[in-house]
């Protein structure tokens, strides 16, 4: 059996936020509540990047955040999927023209999936994670 298939049955997600307006983060937590219940698919929120299989990045990345993000990506045990959540993380969103933007996530680390929306709805989030799972298992 290939690694992706094994991984796709149990995805532990780690949540990284750099300069978001905090709305996308609330939606991530929403996806874990009884209404959407991501644990059905074996998805669990963990507190340490060392346990994570998937990193959810929200917010346009600012200068301080960029070095942290790169560092976290480097120390994380691979295989690791990176998902950019919200318009900010995908493209810069409404913060795009501002002076402290350090660019969308994919300028810093490779991204496996983009979930647009401002904020991204939990349904979109689940859909995105399912797509990552599919991508991992092929």
């Amino acid at each position: 059996m290939n690694k992706g298939k094994i991984l796709s049955r149990s995805i532990w997600v780690f949540h990284f936020c750099s300069g978001s307006c905090n709305n996308c983060d609330i939606e991530i937590l929403d996806a874990l509540t009884p209404r959407f219940d991501l644990e059905r698919f074996g998805i669990k929120l963990v507190g340490s990047i060392k346990h994570a299989d998937c990193m959810l990045v929200t917010g346009m990345i600012n200068k301080k955040g960029a070095t942290r993000l790169k560092f976290l990506y480097d120390i994380a045990p691979k295989p690791l999927a990176v998902v950019a959540i919200g318009a900010c993380a995908c493209s810069g969103g409404i913060f795009e023209p501002s002076y402290y933007t350090y660019g969308p996530v994919d300028k810093i680390i490779p991204v496996d999936a983009y979930i647009p929306g401002c904020p991204a709805r939990p349904e979109a989030l689940i859909d995105g994670i399912v797509k990552v799972v599919k991508k991992l298992s092929t």
């Binding site: 690694k3 094994i6 991984l7 149990s10 060392k50 299989d53 120390i75 994380a76 045990p77 691979k78």
Partner: peptide
Amino acid sequence: RKLFIKEVT
């Protein structure tokens, strides 16, 4: 099973 295919850091 997943943990055993992950990298050790």
